[in-house]
Simulated assay, not measured.
Amino acid sequence: MTETSFPTPVAPSDALLDVRHLKKYFPIRGGVLSRVVTNVKAVDDVSFSIRRGEVVGLVGESGSGKTTVGRTILRLGEPTSGVIDFDGADISKLSKPAMRRYRKRMQIVFQDPYASLNPREKIRTVLGHALAVHNIGTSADREDRIVAMLEQVGLSGDYLDRFPHEFSGGQRQRIGIARALAVEPDFIVADEPVSALDVSIQAQVVNLLEDLKDKFSLTMLFIAHDLAVVEHISDRVIVMYLGRIMEIAPTRTLYRNPNHPYTKALLSAVPNPDITARKDRIILKGDIPSPINPPSGCVFRTRCPIAIADCAKVVPVPVEVSPAHFSACIRTAPQPAYGQLAAQDMP
């Protein structure tokens, strides 16, 4: 079988998280007996690693599988197949009781800061639950820990007896971050943590996450669809489309020299503060296809502005186009068997 998973420049000894051939299919049932008739291929053979202390951005359109990747890594959804190696242990098939020892080390910051908080509980209780579940501290000193955590995220300890509806969106997200950090995790999945916030507040929350990452030596998977936000906080960036990875590169490399046509289209839509700088917008035609019946060959080919006939026949193999920069495209990163494409076929 042709190897279509992305290699990684991360040495095994440096990797906190190593995901290999991860798949997550959602069955669709039908008929009188409710048998599985087909599957939604939300994540289809995804591989990547994250080194300790690194922030990796995961970007793509809605429906690309970003959130499913994050939730499956944390075992909030069961993987269909693949390996999730966390700090040297494969957690992909652990039972729920066995996973409990890893829950403390792996936390999530949710997209919606209001829906992720119980509206009937005061902040004292919301944050106290996290400590109690993991048996952190004694009941006597937990309140001191809660106050200290609120102060770490820029909130006052005087807020302990308020309910979630008494806070702004940005403050609620800070509470969500405090809850994730209260158990002193090693790894955080930040699932579009600023997409529900006003633009004026987004930068504050991103800066807060960046400061906390340095202060607590956190490793983070930062999921977003806004490439301008990802550029600010990430060390490397993964670009996903329809359940597959299109490109992986160090942040500076990706933004200065994108290789895959999908990445180029995404970056062309990022606003440029320099109004004198010319940027040709790449408009993708049509909508993202259904993950129930993805296109053959390269899943991006139905919307790709440079697709050719061979794109329907071959699932592209990731090619290293520059150091630590991998792309899966037979046009811009020609495959060994397809490297002889006619010059007139190239853009």
Rank of each mutant, 00 (worst) to 15 (best):
T2C: 13
T8V: 12
P9G: 06
V10C: 05
A11C: 13
S13N: 15
D14R: 11
V19C: 00
H21M: 10
L22V: 03
L22C: 05
Y25R: 06
Y25V: 01
F26T: 04
R29S: 12
G30A: 10
V36F: 14
V37T: 14
V43H: 03
D44Q: 14
S47P: 12
G53D: 02
L58F: 05
G60Y: 01
E61L: 12
T67S: 15
T68W: 00
R71F: 07
L76E: 10
G77V: 13
E78I: 10
E78R: 12
P79T: 06
P79H: 08
G82Y: 03
D85S: 14
G88K: 11
G88W: 08
G88E: 07
A89I: 09
L94P: 01
P97C: 13
A98G: 11
R103Q: 09
Q107G: 06
Q107W: 04
F110C: 00
Y114L: 13
L117G: 03
N118Q: 09
E121V: 06
T125Q: 14
V126K: 00
V126N: 02
S139H: 13
R142I: 03
R145A: 03
A148I: 13
M149V: 01
Q152I: 06
S156F: 08
G157W: 12
Y159V: 12
L160Q: 07
D161V: 11
P164D: 05
P164Q: 11
H165N: 15
F167V: 04
Q171I: 08
Q173C: 04
I177C: 02
R179N: 03
R179F: 00
L181E: 02
F187N: 01
I188Q: 02
V189G: 02
D191Y: 06
V194T: 11
S195R: 06
A196M: 04
A196F: 00
V199Y: 07
L209A: 01
D211L: 15
D214P: 01
S217N: 15
S217W: 09
A224V: 04
H225M: 06
D226P: 03
D226L: 06
L227K: 07
A228P: 00
V230E: 00
E231M: 07
R236A: 07
I238E: 00
M240W: 09
M246N: 09
P250I: 10
R252W: 08
T253R: 09
L254Y: 02
L254F: 10
R256E: 11
N257D: 14
P258I: 04
T263K: 06
K264S: 14
K264R: 15
T276M: 15
R281H: 14
L284S: 05
K285P: 05
D287T: 08
D287V: 10
P289L: 11
P289R: 10
S290A: 13
P294H: 08
G297D: 02
G297L: 01
V299A: 07
C304S: 04
C304L: 03
P305I: 13
I306H: 12
I308K: 15
C311P: 03
V314L: 12
P316V: 04
P318L: 08
F326W: 07
C329S: 09
I330W: 00
R331A: 10
P334G: 09
Q335V: 14
A337N: 11
L341K: 13
A343D: 15
